[in-house]
């Protein structure tokens, strides 16, 4: 039996909402609400969705910066979902994270060398001389001059800072890197430099990525498969090709139609959604997207099992009568309960 590199099963992350004088828990933000996914070695899984859909929370939980409420996260078949700090430490070198804003994720009081060297020290690797060499090699690998090592992160531009963040993430030769909006704070001409670097590193080191972004063109460019998230749940999961050419879920279709086309002569037909993403504090009891678009079949979805079904090989879509065509619904509807 072979295992995927990462396997997430029915993951839920709820944050308590407290109120009143005694600060008793009055509710919960269901940031991630029943997510299952796998990532294979060397694969990029893109994760798209609008702000507040829980994609960053999911990413942070996978590298265990957050503790999930229920469900399992298995990394090479080790369950890390509830492991304590002690048990996690030796495993952590395998999964790293790159953040959106490198200015905030790099300590301004540490030199670039200290930032990149820190993982080696924490894991007790190498002699002082070896670590010096490794830091230089890493800087070189991400396209920064080795003279940068003695400078501080704020002396660099956004793109260069992101390179420092990538060097730090690469230091321990991880197998999986969670990239949380790695290019959205960058200018377009710098964005392509960083995307190219990520693609090259994957090719050279066989890395897997969970690539979180809201820019659908960028996600399509780097991903093998794409998961579309809406209000804490994955609503569609398929190869990048299938998601973009043949989306089956109404939300995916709306999201794709909203991407501005880069040709002024092509005016695509837009599916304009009403309103905003609903709050995950008090999510509608049935299909969240069906509720947003006020679908007539919404009442059927209350209490129903809306989990993903395989509509075509490797193309999964939520079994939600509000969000798939009538024809697709016949393929994905759960078998009627026996009387």
């Amino acid at each position: 039996m072979t295992y995927p590199l990462l396997s997430v099963q029915d993951l839920r992350i709820h944050f308590p909402v407290r109120g009143g004088v005694m600060l008793r828990q009055t509710g919960a933000v269901r940031a991630v609400d029943g997510v299952s996914l796998d990532i294979a070695p060397g694969e990029t899984l893109g994760l798209v969705g609008e702000s507040g859909c829980g994609k960053s929370t999911l990413g942070k939980a996978i590298v265990r910066l957050l503790k999930p409420t229920t469900g399992s996260i298995r990394f090479e078949n080790h369950d890390i979902s509830h492991a304590g700090p002690h048990a996690l430490r030796p495993l952590r070198r395998n999964f790293q994270m790159i953040f959106q804003d490198p200015a905030e994720s790099l300590d301004p009081r540490m030199s670039v060398r200290a930032i990149i060297e820190e993982p080696f020290i924490i894991h007790g690797l190498g002699s002082r001389a070896e670590r010096l060499q490794w830091v230089d090699d890493l800087l070189d690998r991400v396209g920064l001059p080795t003279s940068s090592a003695e400078r501080y992160s704020f002396e660099f531009s956004g793109g260069q800072r992101q390179r420092i963040g990538i060097a730090r993430a690469l230091a321990l030769k991880p197998k999986l890197i969670v990239c949380d909006e790695p290019v959205s704070a960058l200018d377009v001409s710098v964005q392509s430099q960083i995307l190219n670097l990520l693609v090259e590193l994957q090719r050279d080191f066989g890395l897997s990525y969970l690539f979180i972004a809201h820019d659908l063109s960028v996600v399509k460019h780097v991903s093998d498969r794409v998961a579309v998230m809406y209000l804490g749940k994955i609503v569609e999961l398929a190869t990048a090709e299938a998601i973009y050419k043949d989306p089956r879920h109404a939300y995916t279709q709306a999201l794709l139609s909203a991407i501005p086309s880069h040709d002024p002569k092509v005016k695509r037909k837009k599916i304009l959604l009403e309103g905003d993403v609903p709050s995950p504090i008090d999510p509608p009891p049935g299909s969240a997207f069906g509720h947003r678009i006020n679908h007539p079949r919404y009442p059927e979805t209350i209490g129903a099992d809306l989990s993903l079904r395989e509509i075509f090989p490797k193309h999964w879509v939520a079994a939600d009568p509000c969000c798939v065509s009538a024809e697709d619904w016949e393929k994905v509807r759960p078998a009627p309960a026996k009387a």
């Binding site: 990029t44 377009v188 001409s189 964005q191 392509s192 430099q193 995307l195 190219n196 693609v199 090259e200 994957q202 659908l216 063109s217 960028v218 399509k220 460019h221 780097v222 991903s223 093998d224 990048a240 090709e241 973009y244 991407i259 880069h262």
Partner: peptide, 15 residues
Amino acid sequence: SIPTLDTPSKSLLNT
């Protein structure tokens, strides 16, 4: 330098 939906996946972009 911007990837569009037609750019071949994981190809190197112009920078």
